[in-house]
């Protein structure tokens, strides 16, 4: 390590290093120049407690708990506007996904965050048979806040469901099976192995 690198190293706090090591595309965080174009370009901008630019600064300031327990990155709609506009070409969308996933893996992401819950449902749904079962996804979505609220939501959403059913874009029978890949065991083996490799890469901080 050169004297120069060593000097710079002292100013990188442990949370920035943790993000660089464990968060998808986290090594880009140090490149942010705080211009705020990402925050101004986000369709959900007003709903973020800390817009991306602020999260980047908080990471560099070592605010681990505030960043990882924030609901902010769960506001990302994956519209990629920030990526398209960032003058430093940071893959901001992916960093936000990475931060959300990391907080989720550590178990410290906000518990009742609806997008966190929905994202988990989505993954569980698709990885079971290799393809999304839209009906089951919809049903579990309605009931994600418990039975009583689920019934209310399902009734409220009934006209939409009927519309989709009438136009042959929803299949009630999907509840009892539905689409999937043929080689489910192969698919599960791939995902299991990928998960093992990814878990082994995670560094302790």
């Amino acid at each position: 390590m050169s004297a120069n690198t060593a000097a710079v190293e002292r100013y990188r706090n442990s949370f920035l290093k943790e993000v660089e090591a464990n968060v998808e595309e986290g090594n880009w965080v140090k490149m942010c120049m705080q211009c705020g174009v990402c925050s101004g370009s986000c369709p959900f901008g007003p709903h973020w407690d800390h817009p991306p630019q602020e999260l980047f600064m908080m990471i560099r300031a070592g605010k681990r708990e505030e960043v990882l327990t924030s609901s902010s990155m769960w506001m990302c709609t994956s519209c990629y506007n920030c990526i398209a506009r960032c003058p430093r070409e940071l893959p901001i969308t992916h960093i936000m996904h990475g931060l959300a996933n990391y907080a989720h893996r550590l178990g410290i992401a906000p518990k009742n965050q609806p997008t966190r819950k929905f994202a988990k449902m989505f993954w569980d749904n698709l990885s079971k048979k290799g393809r999304v079962n839209e009906l089951k996804l919809g049903v579990s979505l309605y009931f994600m806040n418990g039975f009583v609220s689920g019934i209310k939501t399902a009734i409220a959403a009934l006209p939409i469901g009927i519309g989709m059913y009438k136009t042959k874009r929803l299949n009630p029978m999907e509840y009892f099976g539905g689409h999937g890949v043929k080689d489910t065991s192969g698919l599960h083996a791939i995902l299991k192995k990928a998960r093992e490799i990814e878990d082994a890469k995670m560094k302790k901080f």
Binding site: H97, N101, H104, T115, F122, R131, I190, R195
Partner: peptide, 20 residues
């Protein structure tokens, strides 16, 4: 198989998602 779309990241992470 499914690509995990833009919401699969949270549970899927990086490698399992790319593997799909």
């Amino acid at each position: 198989n499914c690509c995990a779309a833009s919401i699969g990241y949270a549970e899927g992470g990086e490698l399992p998602r790319l593997a799909l």
